[in-house]
Each structure stands twice: as structure tokens, then as C-alpha cells.
């Protein structure tokens, strides 16, 4: 199992490094690494402005310096791969996914609240473990899928593997049955993996 995961990791790592090496020159590499730095810097600066709430020269310069240091040190943590060219389009697709998720969460929440307040609750619930294999490929899409499953009440992700094997604990038949279907399709659309 572990060796299989290792192979998968290598498979995922190789295309990115293959992209990086053939052009060779260090200038191209530096330009590619500059985009994550700028994006991280903007996010950090926004957080600083909201959290500090003072706009005089002293606090602003302090914020600029600390944000530059932090984003220099950790820009490779936030964006793992240096090619983020379609970032704006990616965020646009992702934001279109959020309202659908909200609607789904509210519907499922009402279902679980109905279960909780039902006087004969013990006969209605029927916990089960649902296993399925997801078609999503990238790590970020898998993490989003797992978190979406956990956020929708009635289902909790128990276990995810790197290849997309899911184990989900569902509280009754109605919430466990439609699982891989619509949500996976929507996430595949949001991450451009149709």
C-alpha cells in the first residue's frame, strides 16, 4: 500500500519537474516563482489591513515589511506548483460552486434537524459505511470533495486515500445513497477536470 502511494506521488511530481527543467535558464524559473509570491503578499496584506485597523504610516510600513518576509518564506507552502497561470479563471469557477454547496448544506441540515427532533428517532436512523472510488485526480479536488462531504450533514468522510478511495459514514439511507453523483460532477467542473 505504502509503495503504491509512493509511486503515485512520483507520478504526480514528475510532469511538473519535467516542465521546469527543459527551458533551463534560471531567469524563467525566477519569473515563474514570482507569481506565488505576489499573490501570497496581497492576501497577507489584506489580512493585515483587516486585523490591524490602523492606516497611519507607521503601521502600514510595519505591515508591508512583515508581509514581505512572511510571503518570501512561505509562498511555496500556499501554492505547491509554480504554474498558476489560470488562477483567476480557477477562482471564478470555484466561486460559482459555493452557492450550490450552501443550498445543499441547508437542505441537508434541515433533514438532520428533523431527525434530531423526531420522537421515534431510533427507528428512523440506520447508520452505514458507504465505500466508493472517486474519479477526481488532483489532491486539491480530493480535499475539497472530502470537506464538502463532511460539511453536508448526514455524511462524514472517514477515510480518503491518495487514489480517491472514499469511506463515508452516512446516518441513513436517504443521505448515503446519492453520494458520488452530483457533488463529484460539480467539483470536477469547478476544478476543470471534466
Amino acid at each position: 500500500m505504502a509503495s503504491q502511494d509512493q509511486e503515485n506521488l512520483d507520478d504526480k511530481a514528475s510532469p511538473g519537474s519535467g516542465d521546469m527543467t527543459p527551458p533551463g535558464p534560471a531567469a524563467r524559473q525566477r519569473r515563474l516563482f514570482a507569481y506565488p509570491f505576489i499573490v501570497t503578499f496581497i492576501i497577507m496584506l489584506g489580512l493585515w489591513l483587516i486585523l490591524s485597523g490602523r492606516f497611519d504610516a507607521f503601521h502600514l510600513s510595519l505591515g508591508l515589511i512583515s508581509c514581505a518576509i512572511v510571503s518570501y518564506l512561505s509562498s511555496d507552502l500556499l501554492f505547491a506548483s509554480p504554474k498558476i497561470t489560470g488562477l483567476l479563471r480557477q477562482w471564478g469557477r470555484f466561486i460559482r460552486y459555493v452557492p450550490w454547496l450552501m443550498l445543499e448544506i441547508i437542505k441537508a441540515n434541515l433533514h438532520v434537524t428533523y431527525l434530531v427532533f423526531h420522537p421515534r428517532m431510533m427507528e428512523l436512523i440506520d447508520p452505514r459505511i458507504v465505500k466508493f472510488r472517486s474519479k477526481l485526480k488532483s489532491d486539491l479536488a480530493l480535499v475539497t470533495f472530502a470537506n464538502s462531504i463532511t460539511l453536508t450533514p448526514g455524511t462524514i468522510t472517514v477515510y480518503v486515500s491518495l487514489d480517491g478511495d472514499f469511506k463515508v459514514h452516512a446516518i441513513d439511507k436517504a443521505s448515503g445513497d446519492p453520494l458520488p453523483g452530483a457533488m463529484e460532477a460539480n467539483i470536477a467542473k469547478a476544478f476543470g477536470e471534466v
Binding site: 448544506i105 441540515n109 438532520v112 434537524t113 434530531v116 436512523i125 447508520p127 463532511t150 460539511l151 453536508t152 450533514p153 448526514g154 462524514i156 459514514h169 446516518i171
Partner: peptide, 12 residues
Amino acid sequence: DFYSRLHPAGKL
């Protein structure tokens, strides 16, 4: 039980 208690606790 523990697993079904997580459903209301974590998400409601």
C-alpha cells in the same frame, strides 16, 4: 453512538 453523535455536533 459516537459516529452518529458527530453528525449534529460538527455541522448543525
